[in-house]
Amino acid sequence: MSTTDLESESPTAQPASMRTSGRRVGDSIFSYLSIGSGVLIFLTLAAVAVFLTTESMPAIIASQEFSGTAEFSLIETALPLIYGTVLASAIALVIAIPISIGIALFISHFAPRRLASGLGYMIDLLAAVPSVVYGLWGGIWLVPKLEPLYVFLNTYLGWIPLFAGDPSAPMRNLASASVVLAVMVLPIITAVSREVFLQTPLLQEEAALALGATRWETIKTVVLPFGRGGVVAASMLGLGRALGETMAVLMILAPGATFSLHILEVGRHNSIAANIASKQAEASGVDMSLLVFTGLVLFVLTFIINAIARWIVARSGPKS
């Protein structure tokens, strides 16, 4: 930009026009690049959806042809898998959410600053551990360690359907898979919850403290209500991860295909993702199509979960 000195301005000099002769090249390139990236992600998602739908068509058609016969039923194959997936994820969340909130509150409101940052770093590290490592750890180390707990639950709390049945070692049951899933979703729920709790306005916390609230009462009246939406959204993110987790479940769970509530029994459940991973190498034809169909179900399920999470986050966002 050039400026003209007013006093030395000659009467004939025209001020430089502020119009430009077209868009700047750098702007255009960057604009196309970013639009392209946006379109690309949309196309990828669409490609996956189209693939899942078309490839699962043979199974759907076959299912209608064979409907009523015992040989092949889409519903009978898919439903137990959906059931197992949702049950394992739900139990994982029940275990992980309270622990995550506890850790997040400890980091945000109780721990001394240095300990808090160290702990936060460790939690992030936990999120970076590959799931195959969790699978190894769960299958080899954790499963035998959990056995006494399962025996205890089965003996004394066996009247609760979840703990009923006949558990037998090795405890490669749904409960073990859920515990490992809980460990895996814990970091994301903790990290997001911690961020939300840290954003509680100081003024709100001081309002509670000045009224004579204890630290716990301050958390109860101010921090938790403020962070509720964030915690729910974090849990949904965790749920999304648990639903889609393959390796750890595959390596821990002895599969079955029932609607059993007995999570301590071995060989009763399986998850969609683990089922696909274990069978896709040998499957062909309509069997492959069936696997793809279960994949489509998982795709839709996680899609819905994410949509709900987004909706909750948007709804509980800052109000004007």
Binding site: L203, Q204, E206, A207, A210, P225, F226
Partner: peptide
Amino acid sequence: GMVFQKANPFP
């Protein structure tokens, strides 16, 4: 009791 610079009712 204490009243602050900015009103801070519990939202």
